[in-house]
Amino acid sequence: MYPGFLVLVAFAVTMLVWNGALSFTSFPGFGQAKWVGVKNYNSLLDNPDFWESLLHSTFYIIPMALIPTALAVFGAVAIFDAFRGRLARSFFPWVRGAFYLPQVIPIAIAGTIWGWMLSRDGLLNQILRGLGAVNPTTNWLATPISALVSVSLFMVWLQFGFSFVIFLAGLSRLDPATVEAASLDGANWWQRFCFIALPSLRPEVIVVLIITAIAGFKVFAPVVYLTMGGPRGSTASVSSFAIDSFFGGGSIGRGSAATTLLAIAIGVVAVVIAVLFVRVTRRDGGLSGDGS
């Protein structure tokens, strides 16, 4: 225990140092070494770009969390149901791998490829041309609405695999006998889904939704690597806005204010979750090594 304890202390101290540095950043005007009090926060709240990025960040929860999770639940159940037979079994890992691949590829590279696909002579336009549309030359990332839609599609592509894999693993807990009994009793696919598969996946769904929702709110990389915040900030998230302020706009204080607000928002949610989590684990008998 004691080695663990010592390392824990070292870790906690390091964590406190980071946290100290973090509260450091809420010293507005730090970069310019001028203490300006809450001026940065005020100007931030007055800044329409900030509010726009906040709107986007909230919106991004949809393509990062809600859509991929919903699709993944249906997909996992469907695939679990359907893949029987030896030939199908051997396809199964490939299908799972194909969907998880976007999570494995470095996001910078995925963004580069998607950026190319959505450009003027990229894949999307080629498909449209093939379907007979009059020569489309739009760069899909150049107009605000289409950029937002493109980034959202990119996010769904990215995030589907994560939930999918987790739900597949969760479904393997399901007793096939129960499912067989239900279908013998005359339950159709939809009923089996709602009353058997879905409830048994509830813990996974909750965990996945929480993680992906938070990830969606603090999203940074997909936005930056696809659109750099989009045509005139129309796809920026709070994180990309903040980092832009740090290293692009030269306004350190503004960036720190934005990240601190983000951190506080997420911190509150995270603490709530942690408290709930503690309660649940306590109720389930604690964390002591009691696996036997």
Partner: peptide, 22 residues
Amino acid sequence: TFVLATCVVIFLMPQEAFAYPI
């Protein structure tokens, strides 16, 4: 429980908040 809860909070935190101090 404190340690585990802290770990959860840490890894949910946005990295961007730590980025500038780092």
